[in-house]
Design a protein around this nucleic acid. Structure first.
Length: 417
RNA sequence: GGAGGGGUCGCAUAGUGGACUAGUGCGUUAGUCUUGAAAACUAAUGUGGGCGCAAGCCUACCGCGAGUUCGAAUCUCGCCCCCUCCGCCA
């Protein structure tokens, strides 16, 4: 969410960003509504002032008459104001955030820039199997019974697959805790304001499961509840940045991708994720540094696991509305013969905190909206694709990365009998 | 789910239709006193919005939303949350 002041003073820039991010909004209408809003507000304040003065005096018959008149007028103007404000905030909520200067301008994924890559791609002297085939052969993934019981894109993780999944989550969790992140088990059933606040709404409504209760949704990421953790609060500068690592199940409808990735564990409705979330002060340069820190954490995890990956700097056309800078990490997935997205690392600026009303008191006593950043640490089962496929042996067994051995209790998954 | 109690400016409390422009205590900040500290004293100390060069002025907010009234923290209705007990339950 941008402030009206910002939009007024940077109209040309806002229009340019709308174009670069491929969004539409009527900027002139916003400024006109804002003008109307102020006009009504002024009128209302004058009327209220008169009413307040009146009600402090001994009341006379004329006073009562005037009071009634004021009441009627106020009602009209207050309704007017309410409607103007609703229209205004509706329109503003669609204005995306302003990317940083280093973000490349581009229309779509082709405009993203590969920053660097790590690890050697595996060379197989046999025909490698996909994670789907491996999952069957090792009896660790059961998609048939998954779809039978859960529906399209359903799955069971089984045997060492189930253990591996939990071990990976816990490995990432522990690693971030050791780096000073505050561990959170976050709710997945969330109120609508958290989804609006994090910038999921109003755009991605089709992507979210709504429960039958009036105001309850299944979050697609713990970013929603954790970003809203401090909503309506004023923090102090000294306690920032606050770094959280949150674990939660994630639910996504994957609407509009019915034909895509229909097999296997790449695109599922239900998965689990360890997320990194930072609430920081309103400082772009500090945010850049924290962004790199989040990036390093995610890359370290992949390096610990020995999985080859590449890092992309996302262009304007391929980033979300709230983001001002974003890196994606893509991990090598042999069956796709390409890298597949496994982590996404973003600076949100004050976009979310304006919607969620999260401020901090500066040392000089003034108040300012916080900045937020977030990055995946590890999401499973998608990461299992890379793990199983990259570490498969000729006989179909799979090596387990060393860092996980104490958690899993095994160092390889043998072919099932 | 049922019964009862509660929600007031960081915390604790007062306030049951007009000076509430929300009192008091604690906390916090600044000052006075002190070699320093403590104590004491004095003052300041919520959030959003508008007007103004500024000092400042105005306005809204007492869990949330409607309503009654010339006037609502206070009365009415609906909702939310918390506490206690009962029921159910991992």
């Amino acid at each position: 969410m941008l402030s009206v002041d910002y939009i007024r003073n940077n109209k040309e820039e806002v229009i340019r960003v709308l174009k670069n991010k491929k969004r539409e909004a009527d900027v002139d209408k916003i400024l006109e509504l804002d003008r109307q809003k102020n006009e009504s507000l002024l009128l209302i304040q004058k009327l209220r002032e008169e009413r307040n003065i009146l009600s402090k005096k001994t009341i006379t018959q004329e006073g009562k008459e005037r009071g009634k008149k004021i009441k009627q007028e106020l009602k009209i103007h207050e309704e007017e104001l309410k409607s103007t404000e609703e229209q205004l905030s509706q329109l503003i909520s669609y204005i995306p955030n302003i990317p940083l200067e280093e973000v490349p301008i581009g229309a779509d994924a082709s405009g993203n820039i590969v920053k660097h890559a790590w690890g050697n791609l595996p060379k197989f002297d046999f025909a490698p199997l996909s994670h789907i085939e491996l999952g069957k052969k090792l009896d660790i993934i059961d998609t048939e019974r998954g779809t039978k019981t859960s529906g399209f894109r359903g799955y069971f993780l089984k045997n060492q697959g189930a253990v591996l999944h939990i071990s990976l989550m816990f490995y990432a969790f522990q690693k971030l805790i050791q780096k000073g992140f505050i561990p959170l088990i976050a709710p997945s059933i969330v109120k609508g304001f958290t989804l609006f606040g994090s910038g999921q709404f109003p755009w991605g409504k089709d992507e979210v499961y709504k429960l039958n209760d009036d105001d309850a949704y299944l979050a697609g990421t713990s970013e929603a509840p954790v970003s809203a953790y401090f909503s309506g609060e004023i923090l102090s500068e000294d306690e920032l940045p606050k770094k959280f690592t949150a674990f939660s199940p994630c639910f996504r409808k994957e609407a509009g991708s019915y034909g895509k990735d229909t097999k296997g564990l790449y695109r599922v409705h239900e998965f689990w994720k360890i997320e990194q979330i930072i609430i920081a002060k309103n400082d772009v340069n500090q945010a850049r540094i924290l962004h790199e820190e989040l990036q390093k954490n995610a890359e370290e995890l992949l390096q610990d696991l020995g999985l080859p990956y590449q890092v992309l700097l996302m262009c304007t056309g391929d980033m979300g509305e709230p983001q001002i800078k974003k890196y994606d990490i893509e991990t090598w997935m042999p069956s796709r013969n390409s890298y597949g997205e496994t982590m996404s690392n973003s600076i949100m600026g004050d976009f979310q905190t304006r919607r969620l009303n999260i401020k901090y008191r500066k040392r000089d006593g003034s108040k300012e909206y916080c900045f937020t950043l977030n990055n995946t640490a590890l999401a499973s089962p998608r990461i299992l694709i890379a793990l199983l496929e990259n570490f498969q042996e000729k006989d179909g067994s799979v090596r387990i990365p060393k860092v996980l051995h104490t958690l899993t209790g095994f160092d390889k998954i043998p072919v099932a009998k």
